[in-house]
């Protein structure tokens, strides 16, 4: 069995070349792709998420770890596909209309991917109808919306209304600096998360 602690340490410190080498070695050793993904990469990303939540690591550390995870999952992808492994569910993520900030949204995407979701990145300045169209197209179970500004936060309300009116069964999660649980309750979203790691936990709970 491969030494997953070594792989996790390499991934958590963002060492792309080491992660590639260790994943290739694990595959060559005959370890199943899903096991490498779950016991190595996803577990490491989960730990990074928890440390981010506890203010022990910060944006740069999460970004380099996520990049290392991506390097590893790219090597695993063909093996996962041939083994018929599927994502937990699909999530559509975007920053709401009028808002161009994407660091928070990108962090949530990384955490969702790290938790096993397939994520469609709708980008920034996303209109309500685009959320609806992408969620329909990809049969998304989760729609995530981010806003950094108090002035763009109200766009979330319009998007929630558009999603509900479309009859889509997707659960809506929201977050961002000015957003609160109270606001989430007021606009009828399904969940609020104060940070990226909790967003992934919330999404998992909502589709359970």
């Amino acid at each position: 069995m491969p030494d997953y602690d070594v792989l996790k340490t390499a991934m958590k410190s963002g060492k792309v070349a080491d992660v590639r080498k260790l994943v290739e070695a694990a595959l060559a050793e005959g370890a199943p792709a899903q096991e490498i993904l779950n016991s190595g990469l996803l577990e490491a990303m989960g730990e990074v998420g928890q440390r981010f939540k506890k203010n022990e690591v910060f944006v740069p550390e999460v970004l380099v770890a996520a990049r290392a995870m991506k390097a590893g999952t790219e090597l695993l992808k063909p093996h996962l596909i041939s083994a018929g492994v599927q994502a937990l569910a699909t999530a559509v993520m975007g920053t709401v209309k009028g808002d161009l900030h994407d660091i928070g949204k990108n962090l949530v995407i990384m955490m969702l991917e790290g938790a096993g979701f397939a994520v469609i990145d709708a980008g920034v300045d996303v209109a309500p109808e685009k959320f609806v169209a992408l969620a329909k197209e990809h049969n998304a179970k989760i729609i995530g919306m981010s806003a950094l500004l108090t002035t763009t936060m109200p766009s979330m309300k319009g998007a929630v209304e558009a999603i509900r009116a479309s009859g889509l069964p997707a659960k809506i999660i929201i977050g961002g600096a000015p957003v609160t649980q109270t606001y989430c309750d007021a606009i009828g979203a399904d969940g609020y998360s104060p940070d990226a790691a909790s967003a992934a936990e919330l999404a998992k709970r909502l589709i359970a």
């Binding site: 963002g14 740069p60 970004l63 380099v64 990108n106």
Partner: peptide, 9 residues
């Protein structure tokens, strides 16, 4: 842009 964070490493 956001490149800055990754480039710090």
């Amino acid at each position: 842009g956001n490149d800055l964070f990754m480039q710090m490493y």
